[in-house]
C-alpha cells in the first residue's frame, strides 16, 4: 500500500470516514430527544459547518477512525442509569459545539470539525493551549506543559460546566 498523497490533493475516499459515514452517525448525537433518557431538555445547538479549509484534510486523515463524540465508540465510565451530562462549548468567534462523550475537549472539537492546534495530545507540548473565558474544566492527570492564568490544555481536560473558549 502506498501513501503518496500530495498536499494539494484530497485524500482518497476510503480514508475519509470522518466526512461520510461518521458524520451521518454524528447526527444521532446532535439530535438528542427529550425522551432519550437523559432527563435533559432538547439540546438546541447544532454542530457548525466545517471551519477547516481543504488543505487541512491531511490532518483529519490521521485522526482516530472512531468518532469521539459517539457514545458507542468512546470508552467513558458508565454513569449508572444516566447519560453523561451535555455541556455547551462556545468559541469566542461565535462557533458552538457540545461536549458529551469525547475523552477530552480537543477530540470533541475535532469531531465537530473545529480545527485546533495539537502535537502531543497528552499534555506535554502546550500546542493545544487555549483560553478559558468562562466555565470550569477538569484534568484527570496534571498536564506537564506550562499554563498561564486562565489557560487550559484542550487535549487533556473535560468541561465541568458550559465553557467559553478562545482558541
Amino acid at each position: 500500500m502506498s501513501r503518496p498523497y500530495p498536499m494539494s490533493q484530497p485524500p482518497e475516499s476510503n480514508h475519509q470516514d470522518l466526512s461520510s459515514s461518521a458524520n451521518d452517525s454524528f447526527e444521532l448525537d446532535g439530535n438528542i430527544e427529550p425522551d432519550s433518557g437523559t432527563g435533559l431538555p432538547p439540546f438546541e445547538l447544532e454542530p457548525p459547518p466545517a471551519t477547516s479549509d481543504s488543505s487541512a484534510q491531511q490532518v483529519e486523515l490521521y485522526l482516530p477512525e472512531r468518532d469521539p463524540e459517539q457514545p458507542e465508540q468512546t470508552p467513558q465510565l458508565e454513569l449508572e442509569g444516566m447519560a453523561p451530562p451535555v455541556f455547551a462549548i462556545t468559541l469566542d468567534d461565535g462557533h458552538q459545539a457540545r461536549f458529551q462523550y469525547a475523552a477530552n475537549l480537543l477530540e470533541s472539537l475535532e469531531a465537530q470539525q473545529i480545527d485546533v492546534h495539537f502535537q502531543c495530545r497528552e499534555g506535554y507540548c502546550g500546542s493545544c493551549r487555549a483560553q478559558l473565558l468562562s466555565g470550569e474544566v477538569h484534568y484527570a492527570n496534571d498536564p506537564l506543559a506550562w499554563l498561564n492564568e486562565g489557560e487550559i490544555l484542550l487535549c487533556c481536560c473535560i468541561p465541568r460546566s458550559d465553557v467559553k473558549i478562545k482558541l
Binding site: 480514508h15 491531511q58 486523515l61 490521521y62 492546534h117 502535537q119 502531543c120
Partner: peptide
C-alpha cells in the same frame, strides 16, 4: 495567521502511527 502547513500536526504527533495509512 493560521498554520500555513496544517499537515505538519499529524507528522509532529508521534502516536498516530497505528492509524496513519503509512507504508
Amino acid at each position: 495567521r493560521s498554520n500555513p502547513l496544517p499537515w505538519i500536526n499529524s507528522w509532529l504527533n508521534s502516536d498516530n502511527v497505528q492509524v496513519a495509512p503509512q507504508e
